[in-house]
Design a binder for these strands. Structure first.
Lengths: 211, 211
DNA sequence: TTTTGATTTAAACAAATGATTAAATCATTT
DNA sequence: AAATGATTTAATCATTTGTTTAAATCAAAA
């Protein structure tokens, strides 16, 4: 006479429903928003609606939890970038276009990510991989090729990357600078970013023609 | 029979020589380098070679000391920008050139300043002023004028500023990203910035021709 | 020389914060 | 139902950190 109950109670041992997940969500939100130092373990516990000790029970420490979120964020980013940059089917121009569009789309949803990454120099290895991915990509081959063929001017690859990434990311880094008081509203800011999505590739192209 | 002594002992009551100044210097260095949270009052005291309590004796609190440094930094920046941007004697192109060159020169000496400013959203009023200075400057008048005369394409002023500032400042923000391990040395980085000093104005000009 | 007021110090306080502990609770198995 | 092992809690610990206090020191004035 237990089989009814057995079907109903599929969940095995779960008092606080998905406590581990709730902690991860809370940590993800708070860390990404405020950075490591500004977030207290008690904030995370409160946001997750769980007891403080649970945080240390599931994840060994605050640091550990942070690293998990950090890697998660970076992986998400890297996956998108790699896919674009190593694509052998698209032209240089198309890559820049897609790259910028993807960056801006991700950042529009996650506007605090760049500051988060910059603020926390704890985990460098991920960023290093990013740099490597860029420099050794098919994208870079295409750049060298275009220079050789005289389609674009000779440009330092570092400058090209700095320009693409800088033009795209910087507004999000400076974010609050352009919102406070007589500045921009969130809506205006987002509209501006959508406008830049179209413009940045054109600007980059124009740059590549500069002698 | 006191006049000899009066001349010799010009310094009035100074045991720890210039303690106040030493605290300011230490705070300036540490705050600019690491930001508010990462610097402990004990760090400052140690760096200044003074007793911890002196910090609270001369400056009421850590926060107060920080605000002083912050305003100092912003004022230095603002002074340069204002002078350039309101100059009625120089052309638009010259302004961009001088603006970029000055930014890069200041930042080359003070590479941690942008991160410092971004990291500490405590004092917003200064940055607001900066924005105002830009938007209501003679520089902006010249932009509008050039657009009217068809010398440059119609561009959203916000975009123009974001591009100039972004291209110039972003490398310093991403600083460490481009240095660790197989990245850049300090020397290489500085050389790259010097190169950009010449290139950014050209890039901006090219942008301004994009339809 | 004594007094006075500014400067400096060592010590302590109080709050915040990351982590741990020991006991309680609950679902499942025996 | 009792035992078991995972989950959860309240309470506590230990450290860090900004600040204060009370006393000591020192230079100048009286």
């Amino acid at each position: 006479m237990l089989y009814f109950n057995e079907m109903a109670t599929v969940k095995k041992k779960k008092k606080t429903d998905g406590a581990e997940e709730k902690i991860l969500s809370a940590a993800r939100k708070l860390f990404t928003e405020k950075g490591f130092d500004a977030v207290k373990t008690r904030d995370i516990a409160k946001e997750a609606g769980i007891n403080l000790a649970l945080l240390n029970y599931y994840f060994r420490s605050k640091e550990n939890l942070f690293v998990i979120i950090m890697k998660e964020n970076m992986a998400k980013f890297m996956e998108v970038i790699t896919k674009i940059v190593d694509n052998e089917e698209t032209s240089l121009e198309q890559k820049i276009e897609v790259l910028v569009a993807n960056y801006i789309d991700i950042l529009s949803v996650n506007p605090d990510m760049p500051l988060f990454v910059i603020r926390n120099s704890r985990i460098d290895d991920q960023r290093m991989k990013m740099r490597g991915k860029f420099m050794n990509s098919y994208f870079m081959e295409q750049v060298q090729d275009s220079i050789k063929k005289g389609k674009i001017e000779n440009i330092n690859p570092a400058n090209l990357i700095l320009n693409i990434v800088g033009l795209t990311i910087f507004p999000f880094v400076a974010h609050r600078m352009f919102q406070s008081a007589n500045g921009f509203t969130q809506k205006e800011f987002n509209e501006l970013m959508q406008e830049r999505k179209k413009l940045i590739p054109k600007w980059i192209e124009a740059m590549l023609k500069v002698k």
